[in-house]
Design a protein around this nucleic acid. Structure first.
Lengths: 189, 189
DNA sequence: GTACGATGTCATCACTTGATGACTTACGCG
DNA sequence: CGCGTAAGTCATCAAGTGATGACATCGTAC
């Protein structure tokens, strides 16, 4: 046990790595994979972009690391009991932390298949599977496909709102949005 | 009245222009703006990409031309009377002709503001406004914001389906999808 | 049939991107 | 101290991008 993980101040590999990861998450989440450059990430993190290669190997691997980090995140929707809570959770999360790199990938055709697959798996595990279980428990028919429809619909609405594509949608309060979505999707109530 | 518009065979500016426009629509619709190169468009159209500059000025202008062409398209949803018909129309359209360059833009953060604005206006005019009118006529409260939610939700679902992001969703027949969406969104029935 | 303008081709520019490796600097141990 | 290595910096590469303009070639009017 030689060096503690957060060793020195000015030179700190762990801190640089985390800074890159955090910036990558933010930027991928805002702009998608292709529209984020490693130089952007480095600048945002205050770290030389060459270190991305050192710590993550490549831009793609950095992206995959953000997905993994997302998986390890707190506030698991698996704990929720009622579908309406999932809407609440998802909306809050997007409002507070941005759509995240994964939601973007659902409806974007860019990126390598590798990336799409990672995002797809993440979404299925974190959102579709839990929702399917909830619907099943409530004897909703076609639970799985309905869960997929709900998740992709929610993502469409949340991304459109985040991007300011529609005026009325963008100006709703969070509460109003949650209530409206719950009202409009009876499977959730 | 010197030269008819569709003059010679081998050399035909109008035909080349149309070929570029059609290919651009297809590729923008599949990959989004940034992930489509002018070389791709030229190859797909069987036309030298340099002609894009000649006939449209720039790649951005070519995109805007596809949006305008979309506006002039047949099968206007404005003619529809019932919200459920709009789902039918939108689903059919996406299945047959792809999502189109405009739907992509709703949930994508790439592209210039210029492009986003054009796509936004198009969507509002073609989908949100008619749906708002229909909901208004049926005395649905908050018609406009509900229309925006429905449209962005539908786009989320259709893009996810088109991209194969979710398995069950991708394997539905068109009919099943329409019925399911109509059932899940009571505003539409 | 010939000359001119419209149409199409091509090489190339300037720029951006992800990646790489040689170089420099600071930390921490002895 | 001073040295070795981890950490950070920088110049540069190769590939790809949109755009441009010089050039070639076809079609048509005269």
């Amino acid at each position: 046990m030689t060096t503690p993980v957060r060793a020195g101040r000015t030179r700190n590999a762990a801190a640089s790595r985390e800074a890159l990861l955090a910036s990558a998450r933010t930027l991928f989440s805002e702009r998608g994979f292709d529209n984020t450059t490693v130089r952007d990430i480095g600048e945002e993190a205050g770290v030389d972009p060459a270190l991305i290669a050192r710590y993550f190997g490549s831009k793609v691997n950095l992206y995959l690391a953000t997905v993994t980090a997302e998986d390890a995140d707190s506030g698991r929707p698996e704990d929720l009991q009622h579908p309406a809570q999932l809407v609440e959770w998802l909306v809050s999360r997007v409002e507070l932390r941005g759509p995240g790199p994964v939601l973007q990938a659902l409806v974007r055709s860019d990126s390598t298949p590798e990336i799409r697959e990672a995002a797809r798996g993440h979404l299925t595990r974190r959102l579709v599977d839990p929702l399917t279980a909830m619907l099943d428990a409530r004897r909703v028919p076609d639970a799985r496909v309905r869960a997929e429809v709900v998740v992709s619909a929610l993502i469409g609405v949340l991304l459109a709102r985040k991007l300011g594509s529609f005026e009325s949608l963008a100006t709703l309060t969070r509460r109003e949005l949650v209530d409206l979505l719950t009202a409009m999707l009876p499977d959730l109530s």
